[in-house]
Design a protein around this nucleic acid. Structure first.
Length: 191
DNA sequence: TCTAGGATCGGCT
DNA sequence: GCCGATCCTAGAT
């Protein structure tokens, strides 16, 4: 399991290093693991696309202002959840959005949660889809990812990820953020 | 209180 | 590729 110190580093570095890691979700309903293939960095108060831009601190974003290594889960478009991991910590409210992955364990459970008619490639290839596959909702906001007994933890990947296999792209859906919309803070594993 | 808009998804054309 | 669903959040009043 990744230790707290992993998350207490610059957000872009954490985002890169999360690629290839395993998201392991253990609840009664069924254990599931997903290999992270796509993430986005959100750089706090100086990032117009970030929920904490300009120092915004509300009930929703409170988790981002807390310690690193905790899950920040919020609801988007009134119906989808998105999973982030808080980075840096100590009143530096930055985070990495987990945008997608590929199932490596518990695929039948994922399919049961996602629906029988969903194509295999579309089971966990978006932030909302990922949360549905892992049965994550805003109830899980504030969960500690560094607690060995937690129902959601992140483990180091089995095979190391080389920089040459990582694409850097602009972030998705943040056109409202002006020039920050073009910042290359989206990282994706080539396939 | 009220209102505009959103870090998306999936079905349909 | 387009578009509607759906309701919470945050800022304004």
């Amino acid at each position: 399991m990744l230790p707290r110190g992993f998350y207490q580093r610059p957000t872009e570095q954490v985002a890169l290093d999360l690629l290839g890691c395993l998201l392991v979700r253990t609840i009664d309903d069924g254990a599931v693991a997903v290999r992270i293939t796509e993430v986005e960095a959100y750089l706090g108060i100086d990032d117009p696309a970030c929920h904490t831009f300009g120092g915004r601190r509300t009930a929703r974003t409170e988790t981002m202002w807390g310690e690193a290594g905790f899950a920040y889960v919020y609801l988007i478009y009134g119906l989808h959840s998105c999973l982030n991991v808080v980075t840096v910590g100590n009143d530096v409210p930055e985070a990495v959005l987990i945008r997608g992955g590929e199932p490596v364990m518990g695929t039948p459970t994922i399919r049961r949660r996602r629906g029988p008619r969903i194509a295999a490639a579309a089971l966990t290839d978006g932030p909302g889809k990922l949360c549905q596959a892992l049965a994550l909702t805003t109830i899980d906001d504030g969960a500690d990812l560094c607690d060995p007994g937690a129902p959601l933890v992140i483990r180091d990947g089995v095979t190391p990820v080389g920089l040459e296999s990582v694409e850097r792209l602009p972030r998705v859906g943040v056109d409202y953020a002006g020039s920050a919309a073009t910042w290359p803070l989206r990282f994706r594993l080539r396939r």
